[in-house]
Design a protein around this nucleic acid. Structure first.
Lengths: 245, 245
DNA sequence: CAGCCCGCTTGGTCTATACCAAGTGGGTCG
DNA sequence: CGACCCACTTGGTATAGACCAAGCGGGCTG
């Protein structure tokens, strides 16, 4: 049977999403509260399961709920605000407990694997090598970002052998005497790839924020190139700029 | 009938999206090229229309295509990169032709309508009024952002009567002798509301980037509060920061 | 010839149904 | 008692079919 003509102009699933959004916000349901299942909602609102599902998918894309099959759909937590710079420094500033899980650490030479792009960003020659880390960053135990960081090998001998659970910037200062002085970054909205969704524990093709950063030291050498992917529903960025005239 | 067991692990629609993405990127199809319709794709790939549709929706959320019912689905243009600051200044820098359509301009007093929030951001008292503009910003004729800008009324007498098609920052400098010197902004990913989707000519519940900005003058007074909503698929932001130690 | 209208196509929405993978919990068996 | 297993529930994927609004173009009508 076709859809019965609705009185309002907007689609049924938008209205259902609005109703649920209101429930979450007005009754300020606690984060991680279990929402009704798709099948329950389809009965309550007298629509097919696919329509109830569309409403929940809308709320998920807004960051109001998250879904954890086969457990159910839950109320989400509000997002965390970052400034550009080191994840660890930000966590300290916010008084949150940050940690990192090393995914890999290696020396990159030759072409491919982002090595070429990293060398270009770092201002290195084609035959230079770079040291690269990929780390999952967590705050209060929740995965928030995947950082991929590249340093010129010449500046960071032996860095791959260090335990990389803490601040890499701190390591650069303490062990290599490199002072980071300024960063230039590009922030954009992306759709997360399969691996990132997996690591960040969000559903496939979720929205993410890509922060591509170059950091310079006291001599204005580019000493770090980083490509950080944040969960869009959990992160916000605070930036400041002087006005060019 | 149920879905036949696929050989691969990933869903059918992800594979179809990948195939189409490849076609767009490898054959570098020109922007605005018409893609096959959902019904055509469902025949070509031998899936139901809903599955072909999911693939196209995925590509749309990635910004690879845009949909314009009932004309069809088209290859999208790549995104534009901004620095924090004035939209007009950025357009100049990029050598693009920028324009603005005034949506409304009014004086706000009392509570509600964002007036309270604007006063707080501007550091004004509860009985002060603010002058507010909402403008649709276009680049090369394409809607890219909705700016809502608030100024202290005391600093900008008569500003509501000015034609607001160009740069408001230019106006502040030339007419009121106010020099903008620095901005502080928060960038985050949001889902666009119905009106914004409409104005920006994107589908309902598309992803957007919210830039909330406070701008200060030579005396470090906050002279502008702005809430700008950009299309996530068309905008990127370049920022720089010195490293706090 | 001008203008209107109608039918085709498109994406958008919705129904109804089916099977799948994977946690959860209860009950059973050794 | 402990380990295992199976049934139930959940969201995820997929099918097949239906009607809608709206742009477009061709053909008909005045």
């Amino acid at each position: 049977m076709a859809a019965p003509r609705q009185s309002s102009r907007s689609p049924r699933y938008v209205g259902i999403a609005a109703e649920l959004r209101e429930r979450i916000l007005d009754e300020h349901l606690a984060p991680h509260t279990l929402m009704p299942s798709e099948r329950e909602l389809s009965e309550q609102f007298e629509v097919s399961r696919m329509t109830a599902r569309q409403a929940l998918m809308l709320l998920e894309s807004e960051g109001h709920v998250y879904r954890r099959p086969p457990r159910g759909t839950f109320v989400a937590e509000p997002r965390v605000r970052f400034q550009i710079g080191s994840f660890s420094a930000e966590a300290d500033r916010l008084g949150r407990q940050a940690s990192a899980q090393l995914l890999w650490a290696k020396a990159l030479a030759g072409a491919g694997n982002g090595a070429t792009r990293a060398r270009t960003a770092l201002g290195l020659a084609d035959d230079d090598t770079v040291h690269a880390f990929r780390r999952l960053r967590l705050m209060e135990g929740e995965p928030l970002a995947i950082e991929t960081t590249y340093f010129p090998s010449a500046l960071t001998p032996g860095i791959l052998d260090v335990e990389a659970e803490g601040s890499l910037w701190g390591l650069l200062r303490e062990r290599y005497g490199i002072e980071m002085t300024r960063s230039v970054a590009v922030i954009e909205s992306i759709v997360l790839d399969e691996e990132s969704c997996d690591r960040l524990a969000v559903r496939a093709a979720s929205s993410g924020i890509l922060l591509t950063r170059r950091t310079f030291d006291q001599d204005d050498r580019c000493v770090e190139f980083a490509r950080d992917v944040y969960r869009a529903d959990r992160a916000a960025f605070e930036v400041s700029a002087s006005v060019a005239r």
